[in-house]
Simulated scan of single mutants.
Amino acid sequence: MRALRLTAWGEPPAWCEVERPVPRGAEVLVRVEATGLCHSDLHVVGAAPGVLPYRLPFTLGHEIAGIVEALGPDADGPDADGLDTDGLAAGDRVVVYGPWGCDSCGRCASGRANYCDRRESLAWHGAGLGRDGGMAEYVLVPSARHLAPTGDLAAGQAAPLSDAGLTSYHAVAGMRPALGEGTTAVVIGVGGLGHLAIQILRATTAGRVFAVDVREEALALAHRCGAEFGTLLRDDTARVLRARTAGSGADAVLDFVGSSTSLTLATGVLRPGGELAVVGSGGGHLTVRKPGALPPGLRLSLPFWGTRPELADVISLARSGAIHVETEPFPLSAAQEAFDRLRGGRVRGRAVLVPD
């Protein structure tokens, strides 16, 4: 089968002919129906030698939805996290839970492989991240516990939920207790993750949602997703947002950019005792000093992906119609074009690769 693989650091990914995998032991073979394209893929492709622990070559793509093609003889086993995968059968429609850990520590056993205790010692972080991913006709998944059923949810909707939806949900979940009636959350960056975060905030909290971006079309998307107010990023944006909260500031900020500019805005608009989740990897930094410039009582989180039970929650939200992924589809053969468009900031919502 053809697969888009990273074969050398600093070089563009290349189309290669590889053997179709055969599942052994607890492995499951999934026929890929859709693969989301993420800024993390750009970071992987653009990484210099030695930055990432991954061993080359490997197939790219970590947001994967598809159909179970075949199961190894030991594929059905008990799940310590309480999510049943017994009875998984060929023909079932699934999404792949992307972060793969050591599969032996307590966190992996409880469905929290995103925070695997041995993550720093592994040569992979998941499908398409050191292990073969979904930019191919098939993907081999090490265990059925890395699969979540999607039912009648379209594959193009399901695939981005495994990262864009799950990461956003995990970030919101950490600040949900602070977002009751009369509160305000600000989403900075209305891209593949941010537009889903707005919908998740609306579906799971009682707070108002404001949005900030540098693009008018992104603000239009934010309004379609349920944001009460949106504004372009300017020198006076913090003042404008504070005015919308009667001067008190936001109770929570989710920064999906993570640049110095976005972090300055985030801390500038946050009220004392507020919650800040830095999700984006834009290279910015905060100086933590007490006393200092940060709001007193600030609670900071650095969410990474999400848990397997949370993925089931996200799928349920999508199947109920509470969240919808804005997608721009590309045939798998046009993956290089999709990479270029994403790199240039010209993708609407989430780019999704589908088989030709």
Rank of each mutant, 00 (worst) to 15 (best):
G165P: 13
P78R: 05
G134R: 01
E326Y: 07
P99H: 03
G194M: 14
L4Q: 06
A109M: 13
R145G: 00
P21L: 05
V141M: 11
V190P: 07
G297C: 09
S259V: 09
F229H: 15
V325Q: 11
G258R: 07
G283I: 02
L29Y: 12
A136G: 04
P272M: 08
V209L: 04
L286T: 14
L52R: 10
E216H: 08
L219K: 06
S104Q: 14
A154D: 15
E228Q: 10
P78V: 04
E275P: 06
L353N: 03
L233M: 11
D117V: 00
A206T: 14
V279T: 03
V45Q: 00
R2C: 00
R93H: 13
A250E: 14
E137N: 04
A178C: 09
L276D: 09
G72M: 09
R242F: 10
L179Y: 14
P160F: 05
A338N: 10
G72F: 11
A334I: 02
V32Y: 07
D86G: 09
P73W: 05
L56T: 02
R350H: 09
V28A: 12
T85Q: 12
L88V: 01
V190Q: 09
E19T: 10
E120N: 13
V209P: 03
G180H: 08
R24I: 07
T264S: 15
E33F: 05
L317M: 14
G273W: 13
A266R: 06
A8T: 01
P12L: 01
R224P: 01
G111A: 15
D79V: 00
E33H: 15
A123N: 12
L311R: 06
L232Q: 08
L37N: 01
G180C: 03
V68A: 14
D79T: 05
R224S: 13
G344F: 08
D79C: 00
P291R: 01
T85M: 06
E33V: 02
P177D: 07
L219D: 12
A171T: 05
L52A: 04
R319T: 05
P149C: 02
R299N: 06
P355D: 10
V325M: 10
S259Y: 08
V354M: 15
G72E: 12
R2M: 03
G247Q: 08
L122S: 11
E11T: 04
L42K: 07
G182T: 11
Q157I: 06
V314L: 04
W124H: 12
G258C: 10
F58Q: 08
D103C: 14
G274C: 13
L147A: 03
A123W: 11
E11S: 10
H223V: 13
V68Q: 15
D81Q: 01
W305P: 01
S281P: 00
V22S: 15
L52N: 04
A3T: 06
G207M: 14
A227G: 12
I198M: 11
R2T: 05
A154T: 09
L233P: 02
V94L: 05
R112N: 14
S110C: 13
N114G: 04
T327K: 13
G165T: 15
R346F: 13
G226D: 11
